[in-house]
Simulated scan of single mutants.
Amino acid sequence: MKIKYDEEYENIDGENLNLRRFDKYKYCLFLSDVGENQELFIVEPHWHEWLEIVHITEGEMTVYTPQGETIVHKGNTVVIGMQTLHKIVAETGHYNYQCIHINIGFILQHMSSSLLNDKVFIVQNEEEFQSYCSTLIQLINHDDVYSQLRYKASILNILALCVQETQSDLLDAKDEINDIFSDILFYVSTHYQDNISLQKLSQEFNYTTQHISLLFKKNLNTTYYTYLTKIRLDRAKFLLMTTQKRNLDIAIECGFSNEHSLISHFKKSYHETPSQFRKKHQIKDETIS
C-alpha cells in the first residue's frame, strides 16, 4: 500500500490532466479532468494529509473506506477527510470531475483537524457549497488583496459547511468512538508484555489495522507502536528504579523481545542505557520502606 504525503502534490503530472492550479501560497490545489474510462478505473488504498473534495459533473464513482462505501453520482460532491484511508473505483464511460485539495496547514490555523479526520460524506447543501467552490476556483490565481480575501473566505466557508454537515454525526458517534479508543488503551495497558501487534488489536476489536492506526494519530498524535513502546519503557524505568532484576528479565517482563531491544529503545528515547539510568535513579530499599 502506498501512503501518500504532501509531496505528492508537488509531483502531480499536469500533462495528464485537463487543468491543474495551485495558488501561490499553496493553500489549495485544484484539478479537473474529462475523458472516458474503457474499464473500471481504480485508485488503490491511500490517504492524504490534505482535505479532498471531488465534484462529479459526469460519471459515477465509489469511495471505499474501513467504515463502508460511499457512492458518488453525477451532480454529487464528496468530501474525503484528512488521513482517511480510502480506495476509489470509477465506473466505465464518460467522466468529468473537479477536485479541490485544501492544505492541512491552512486548516490547522483555523480549526482542529479531528473535526474532519477519518470522514467521508456526500454534501447535502450542494448549491451553497458549489457557490463557494466556484469562487475559490475563479480566484485561485488572483494576487490582489481583495481577491485574496475573498479566496480565503471561500476556503473558510467550505470548511464551515463541512463541519456543519458532519456535526450531528460527530455528536452521535463521539461517545462510541471515545469508548472504543478507551477500550483499546486499556487493553494495551494490561497486555503490553505480550506480542500485541496491530494485527492482534485488529482481531481483538474487529477493526482494520488502518482504522486503529488512525485512532492513535487522531487522538494522541502518535503511532500505535510509538505509544506501545512508551508504555513498555515506562514500566521498565519503574523496575529499574525499584528492583534488582537483570536487564534481560526486565526486557521480557515489559514485552521487549530481548535485552538488546530494550537497550536500543531506551537509548533512543532517553539517551542513556538502562544501567546508566538505574545507577542514577534507583530507589534504595530503606527509601521504599
Rank of each mutant, 00 (worst) to 15 (best):
Q203K: 10
A251T: 04
I231D: 01
Q164H: 12
R235D: 09
Y224T: 03
V34Q: 11
I53T: 03
S114R: 14
M111Q: 12
A90S: 13
T209R: 15
N16C: 08
A153F: 15
I80Q: 01
L228K: 07
W47M: 06
I155C: 01
F205Q: 01
H86E: 02
N206Y: 14
T242C: 08
F205C: 02
S189Q: 12
E126N: 10
L40H: 11
V72N: 00
V120S: 08
I288C: 08
H281Y: 15
Y151I: 04
S131G: 05
H94M: 10
N11P: 01
Q164N: 12
G35D: 00
C133S: 13
E69D: 14
T226S: 11
L262A: 03
Q67I: 09
A251N: 03
K230C: 07
I252N: 04
T92Q: 12
E36L: 09
L198C: 04
T223S: 13
L215Q: 06
K87H: 06
Y207A: 01
I155R: 00
D33Y: 04
A90E: 06
W50F: 09
L171D: 12
G255R: 00
E286V: 11
L239N: 02
N221C: 08
I196S: 03
H142R: 11
N141T: 15
H86C: 05
H73T: 08
N76V: 03
I3G: 02
E272L: 14
I88T: 14
A90V: 07
E272P: 02
E36G: 02
M61C: 13
N18E: 14
Q98T: 13
E91Q: 10
F181H: 07
S154C: 03
H211Q: 15
L159K: 01
Y207Q: 11
S168N: 10
K268S: 11
T229E: 09
E39H: 11
P66V: 05
K284M: 13
T226L: 12
S134I: 10
T65V: 09
L228C: 04
I88L: 10
I102M: 01
L139A: 05
Y25V: 10
N141R: 13
Y27T: 06
E7I: 13
E39V: 12
F41Q: 07
